[in-house]
Amino acid sequence: MDPFFYLIIFAGAVAGASTGFLGVYIVGMRMPFIGTCISHAAMAGTIFSCLLGIPPTIGAVTFSVFSAMSMAAIPPDKSRLDTNVGLAILFSFMLGLTFLGIGLVESSRSEILGLLWGNILFVQRKSVLAITAIALLLVLFGTFFNKEMKVLLFSRSIASATGVHQGFVYCLFLCLCGITLSVNLQIIGGLMIFSLITNPAAAAYQICRGHRAVVIAATLFGVLSTVSGFLVSFYFDLPTGACIVIVSTVIFALSVLCRLLSNAKI
């Protein structure tokens, strides 16, 4: 195997770990659609960066963070709007902006479509550094806001009624979602991000007891999905993204099977 592939495997592992970790909270809060939503925000941001002549990453991250933060405007206790409906509205708006941009910027279509499907095989060293730095930021967030995030997962109503600074921590989490997903998007693409957010975390929720076990399992399942998906694609000469998505789905299916076969009350 060419040494360059080690970089791809490392990048995949970091992206899988980051999305698996974030997925614990995103799936737990029942808003997996945020992945697709942020992907399209990043695409819209990339296109408008091209129009304005600024670096695409700046536009992608800005659009992603703003769209993620707009979810904070839906309060937990007095809203008549379900978070997923809010995300669907935002998604359609971002899709509209994306297609508007595609119509306006003819030259960068391939780059934009690359964002949707991802291009892990063309990973650059600086992108790997960026996702590694963000993964470390996630570790810090998970360490310092672990107790608040647990309450937020369990009940945002309890969190706000009992004085947990849930608004602040939730905004911080959304902001981190926007940054993490938009930067990882450049490596693994929007469609793969959606499955890597959802499948490893959903699998962990099936078989784990306790929050720490869920976090560790989801992170490992994320790494397992990307690394083994890549290896399968390498040795059998198959499309990498498709293999990663299928492996993560198989992990979820196996975890459901484990739970059904196990007698333990989980």
Partner: peptide
Amino acid sequence: IGYIPQSTEYNSELPF
């Protein structure tokens, strides 16, 4: 304030 909400207010499906 110790608050005990109605069952619709918390997510009892998570493996806490």
